[in-house]
Structure formats: C-alpha cells, structure tokens
Computed example of a mutant assay.
Amino acid sequence: MSNVLHEVENFEDYLRIIKDEISIKRPYYRGQEKRVQDGYTLWPSLARYEYLKKKSPTELTQIEKRTLTTFANHVIGHVNHIPPDEWGMLALAQHHGLPTRFMDWTTNPLVALYFATRNTKKDKDGTLMDSAVYVLIQQPDNYSDLKNQQEKSDLEADDEEDTSQTTDGDPYSQYGIDGESEPDSYDDEDESSDSSVKKKSLNYASSFTPFDITANVIYEPPHVSQRIRTQDVVLLACFNPLTPLEEKDYLEIVIKADAHESIRKRLDLYGVFDKQLFPDLDGMAKWLKFHEFECQNGEDE
C-alpha cells in the first residue's frame, strides 16, 4: 500500500488535504525539497555519516555524549540561557547545525509547505523535481507527558516508602520496641524489597535522556531562538538514529514541481516566507532576493 496521500497541483489542493484528509490527533509535518524516493531519506542528520553505521549502539552513544559534552563546554558565553538538561542542550546543538539524533518537524503545515517549495531542485537531466510534505502518523509519546509521568512516579515512590515506615500495624516498630530491630538492622532481603520501587524510579529518572529512549519521542524545544518560535519547530528524538523511518510511520503529500512558483507567491501573500520564518538579516535578504530577482517583479500569475 502506497503512503502517498495526494499529489498537489496548487495551493488550494494542499489546504483541502490538510483540512479534510488529515485526521491525526497531533499531526507533525516536515517539508523536503526532494522526496524520499529521490534520496532525501527520513532520518536524523547523524545518519548521513556512513562510518557511524559500523559502530555498535554503545559506541555510537559514547560518540554522541562526548560531542555534546564538548559543545556544552563552549556554550557558556554564547547564549543567555543555559539548557537545564541533555534534551535542551542537544536541541540547541541541533539548532546550530551539529549532527544529532533529532529530526526537525513542525506543527504548522504551511511552514512545511514553505520548506518543500522554497527551492525547486533539478535531476541530473535538468528536469524540475517534485517535492513533498511528510505527515508523521506514528504518534510517538511526547517528552512533556513522559516527564510528568516520571515525576508522578517518583512522588508516589517516595510516599510509598514513607508510608511503609509508619503504618506497618505497630506504631512503636519504628523505635525498635517490643523486640523489633532497629531500621538499620533489617536483613538484606527485606531492604532490597522495601526500596525496590524507589530505586527503579530513580534509575529511570537518571536515564531519561535522548540517548536512552527505547522508542521515538517528540520533544518541543525551548525557544532558544526566534526561528524555533516562528517555525513552530518540534523535534523527533529517534531511538535508532541510523535507521530511516518506516513507510507505515508517515504519509507523503507530493508537491508537483509545476506548482512551486505559484505556491511560493501564495505563501508570501499569507506571511509564511523568508523574512517571517527567519527573522534576521539572512531572512530579510532571502525575502528581498525572492521579490526583486526570483519573482518576475512580484507579478502574480
């Protein structure tokens, strides 16, 4: 079964598909100037380096952690806010071009359409190539939800331990009265049993990093730059970063090459273009370049 949802011939086609044919609760979009079948594989930037595929998972994780540590050591003095954990630090590294296990997606379908049509690629024969917007249908867990579950689990584990020490049927047992031993003289088996819940929770908390996940996770990064905010960026943390997403995990909306020019003009009209999505001098220059040199003097078709 093909995962191609539709072929878009114009801007209105795209809007109709997004409105009427995407029934996913939390859709995430990714625009690409080339389709997967033309060589733009859906995987993180880390997977572009062939030598990494010869590494074991442990070796790969060591390389990722070492690289992130070096990056983090140089962050101070360059940003106003230091990310509080490895998720935030890795997102910052991704934003500045470091290869990571994160993939850029967006919650805004028009932003994805911009990235799919801003530049029209040509094949080796000079023929204009179709592009694509991909819709993630995998529905991965959200980092915030997992973090809240973790914190709740930690609190419940703490409460369980406190309760077990004071409500065992003997109000004097905690003082070692009536032949009961002191708390620190419990045998090894009882100690292991009483603390197992909390130890498991603490181990999970310490390993809740992008490098220890066992399934893909959606992470909404802090707004370390205006670009992240204006592009409605979300990051897909890939637990197996050297393997492409499976076809069953996404839908493909093909954007025909002949429609790119008219779509670019419509996106510009609706404020989804260079200077809005890249609110800096680079974005302004790209927008001005489009209007003065690429847009046929700005005349609409």
Rank of each mutant, 00 (worst) to 15 (best):
Y175V: 05
A132V: 11
K147L: 12
G126F: 00
K152N: 14
D130K: 04
D145H: 10
D158L: 13
L155A: 15
Q138M: 10
L146H: 03
D159Q: 12
K152W: 02
S173I: 04
A132G: 04
S173F: 04
T120D: 04
D170L: 06
E160A: 07
N148I: 08
D178K: 03
D170A: 08
L146N: 06
K121E: 13
L128S: 10
E151S: 13
E161Y: 12
D158W: 11
E180A: 15
K124Q: 06
S144C: 03
D170H: 14
D162V: 11
D145M: 04
Y175R: 07
D125F: 10
A157M: 01
T167P: 00
A132W: 08
K147I: 03
A132H: 07
Y172N: 10
D162Y: 12
Q150E: 07
E160Q: 12
D178T: 08
L146C: 09
Y143W: 15
Q138E: 15
S131A: 13
S181F: 07
G169I: 03
I177W: 02
V133K: 00
S164Y: 05
I137D: 03
D141P: 07
K122T: 11
S164H: 08
N142E: 15
P183F: 00
V135W: 03
T120N: 06
P183C: 00
L136G: 15
K122L: 09
